[in-house]
């Protein structure tokens, strides 16, 4: 991509094509920008933090760094929240912070072209469309593309001290 003069058109499309990590919450599939993902690990050894919202499961030790863990299933009000061998934590770099999110499973990484990303309709109270960057359509599948930066730093996630504290 560093040679725009030779293949400008291709470079442009490549730049606009984005890669998403696809994970599942219940029956739904979500996608987040792969560049935000630091690593994927199992759910274990989480220390509860008292007086925090229920979707904040607590903090865990990630090689000496204390990382908060958010359960998106609780946040998105899924009916079935179970912790088992398949439960996965996606460790994300959000701004200058590290945050882990609990999901039901990670399936694959997908490349979406701009045409495949449709604008998100106004819906839902649980997941405001402010936090969506669009819907990805892939043959018969639909990915909910989450703007994870915005979501995790939002006031309602209570992960960050609000300004002025």
């Amino acid at each position: 991509m560093s040679t725009p003069n030779t293949n400008a058109a291709l470079a442009a499309t490549e730049e606009q094509n984005r890669e998403f990590l696809v994970f599942s919450l219940g029956d739904e599939e979500y996608g987040i920008d792969i560049l935000k993902v630091q690593e994927i690990r199992g759910y274990e050894n989480v220390t509860r933090i008292a007086n925090a919202p229920d979707f904040i499961k607590g903090v865990t030790n990630l090689r000496g760094v204390i990382v908060p863990i958010v359960d998106l299933r609780i946040k998105f009000r899924l009916e079935k929240v179970e912790y088992g061998g398949q439960t996965v934590v996606i460790v994300l770099n959000v701004g200058d912070r590290i945050v882990g999110i609990v999901v039901d499973g990670v399936s694959d990484v997908m490349t979406l072209s701009p045409e495949q990303i449709k604008p998100a309709p106004e819906f839902g109270v649980t997941l405001s469309s402010d936090f969506l960057s669009g819907l990805g359509s892939l043959e018969d599948r639909m990915l909910v593309l989450v703007d994870i930066d915005k979501l995790l730093t939002s006031d309602e996630m209570a992960l960050v001290d609000s300004v002025g504290d």
Binding site: I49, A50, N51, A52, V59, G64, V65, I66, V67, P68, R97, I98, V99, A158, L159, V160, D161, D165
Partner: peptide, 12 residues
């Protein structure tokens, strides 16, 4: 370890 590096101040 600082909690506020990645999280926030926790009361108590």
């Amino acid at each position: 370890k600082n909690l506020e590096t990645n999280y926030r101040k926790v009361p108590g």
